[in-house]
Design a binder for these strands. Structure first.
Length: 497
RNA sequence: GCCCCUGUCGUCUAGCCAGGCCUAGGACAUCGCCCUUUCAAGGCGGCAACACGGGUUCGAAUCCCGUCGGGGGCGCCA
């Protein structure tokens, strides 16, 4: 059997959208599973909108997601060039061939003329198809007009009757009546190929075996098949993926929230989590597993299990998957992923020592549970680095102002006074002594201690928190990390002022 | 308007092709309980769907027809 070759062919006219990323991902999964080739091709014939910046970002985003390509504009390959703007000579060659064989013809109709015909057809309730006006011009006359410098597009001459049938790998057999197709533009009057023409040439020359793309291309497919036929080529297999929608069931767009891959990266979604989520948008494995690595997905993926209906992008489920993937990381890996976010928040010192790293591992381990996205973590780190009682919430304030709270904290301060740093075990002993000395116990005892230590009514368990501030206080940070004793002392000062 | 695709819990979906195994399974979300001196997380449990109408059949989520809903396309954009 022939080697599987698939491609992702984005146009560099914007950031990589999750919908496109999912298309790329399905292609990649298919290629990797079949031990085939995944090709990146850039469709940049829309000169108006294509930009170098987008092209570079596109590749960054794909790499970040973990999608690597075997051939592409940056690394080359045996079927290049991989940028359509560099393939114009190739298209021209085939256009010539088509023209000479009488399978295509020059069209001199003006855009205005066409637009008017289109409007009329729409008003009359017909499909707006090209009339075929220039179709019957004699080749000699057409050639003469072109030679004279008249602007002309090139159209494919399609049969008037019959139907185009193809077997879509996800939708099954699809039929299209030729009457509703019309003669598509192959080459624009500015000499650049139209999308529907360039894809056919490129896919064939690059020996693409499976075209896996969005459902919005379904109705383009018969036109493309007709082009293959005119050229005498065998079309590839097609698989059309359903659309990705927002919560309101309209096409996913910016107003639904983050939609570009780099936005998710910046928010702290793990690439493997986005990858996992995207794979489940319109596909599911036979056994119903949910949290899967790239490798597992490659193994399980199957085009025949791809769903035919549109899927709504569910941020909640993405977050849940992100938490699951977060959980699977080792403590060291967690720190590595979190570091950029802490860096940005300005917590980290110039130089991170081995001690800092070890402390961070424990801190991240303690705080990361329940975190949806990594960008939520710096805020949680405030628990260590921020201790400002004036910003306390009303409920916390009330706990500290209770009669017994002051008794407890004073006794605690006394116990802590002649020690440098305490472990949680030592702290528990101290708390026990405080209880005996003051007679305060249970909630009355622990609540004020928590607030005095953190300034908050909720947060980490004290048995995790206390060792962390005690150890952390010995390290150097951008801003001081207060020890338990310092926190108690400050709280008492605040109470007495 | 015309053409095409599509329709199972709020959401992603399993089941459909090979009709009985489905009083329709899982997951997210939601609600409740447990755990926890806090908040989460975690554990356990609950609520919740075959769009509708006709057929075919002993029997239909599964097959057929229609209706309605949703989406896409109808470019000298990709």
């Amino acid at each position: 059997m022939r080697q599987v070759r698939v491609r992702f062919a984005p146009s560099p006219t914007g950031y990589l959208h999750v919908g496109n990323a999912r298309t790329a991902l399905f292609n990649w999964l298919f290629a990797r599973q079949k031990r085939g080739a995944f090709i990146l091709r850039v469709e940049d014939t829309d000169v108006e909108r294509s930009r170098q910046e987008y092209y570079l970002r596109l590749m960054d985003d794909l790499r970040w997601l973990g999608l690597d390509w075997d051939e592409g504009p940056d690394i080359g390959g045996d079927y290049g060039p991989y940028r359509q703007s560099e393939r114009l000579e190739i298209y021209r060659l085939y256009t010539q061939q088509l023209l000479e064989a009488g399978r295509a013809y020059y069209c001199f109709c003006s855009p205005e003329e066409l637009e008017q015909a289109r409007r009329e057809a729409l008003a009359a309730g017909r499909m707006p198809i090209y009339s075929g006006k220039c179709r019957h011009l004699s080749p000699e006359e057409a050639a003469a007009r072109v030679a004279r410098g008249e602007k002309a597009a090139v159209r494919l001459k399609t049969p008037d009757k019959g139907e185009v049938i193809f077997n879509d790998l996800v939708h099954g057999e699809l039929h299209f009546q030729l009457e509703v197709i019309g003669d598509p533009i192959l080459v624009r009057s500015n000499g650049l190929p139209a999308y529907n023409y360039a894809v056919v040439i490129d896919d064939h020359l690059m020996e693409i075996t499976h075209v896996i793309r969005g459902e919005d291309h379904i109705s383009n497919t018969p036109r493309q098949i007709l082009t293959y036929q005119a050229l005498g080529w065998e079309p590839p297999q097609f698989a059309h993926l359903s659309m990705v929608m927002g919560e309101d069931n309209t096409r996913l767009s910016k107003r639904h929230g983050a939609t570009s891959v780099d936005q998710f990266a910046q928010e702290g979604i793990l690439p493997e989590a986005l990858f996992n989520y995207l794979a489940f948008l319109g596909w599911s494995p036979p056994e119903g597993q949910e949290v899967l690595s790239r490798e597992e997905l490659v193994e399980l993926f199957n085009l025949s299990r791809v769903s035919r209906s549109a899927a709504i992008f569910d941020y909640q489920k993405l977050y849940w998957l992100n938490r699951q993937h977060l959980k699977r990381l080792t403590p060291g890996e967690k720190v590595t992923r979190v570091l950029p976010f802490l860096q940005k928040a300005g917590f980290l010192p110039e130089k991170l020592t081995r001690e800092h790293h070890l402390w961070l591992e424990k801190a991240v381990e303690a705080l990361i549970e329940g975190v949806n996205k990594l960008n939520e973590l710096p805020e949680k780190f405030n628990l260590f680095f921020e201790f400002d009682l004036s910003k306390m919430e009303e409920s916390a304030r009330r706990i500290l102002q209770a009669e017994s709270a002051r008794t407890v904290l004073e006794a605690l301060a006394e116990e802590l006074a002649n020690r440098s740093a305490v472990s949680f075990e030592e702290f528990s002993d101290i708390a026990r002594e405080v209880r005996q000395k003051t007679g305060v116990k249970g909630k009355e005892l622990f609540h004020p201690i928590r607030v005095a230590l953190t300034g908050q009514t909720s947060g980490l368990e004290l048995d995790k928190f206390i060792p962390l501030i005690e150890e952390g206080a010995r390290l150097t940070w951008r801003q001081p990390l207060l020890s338990a004793r310092e926190r108690i002392v400050r709280t008492l000062q605040w109470l007495t002022q």
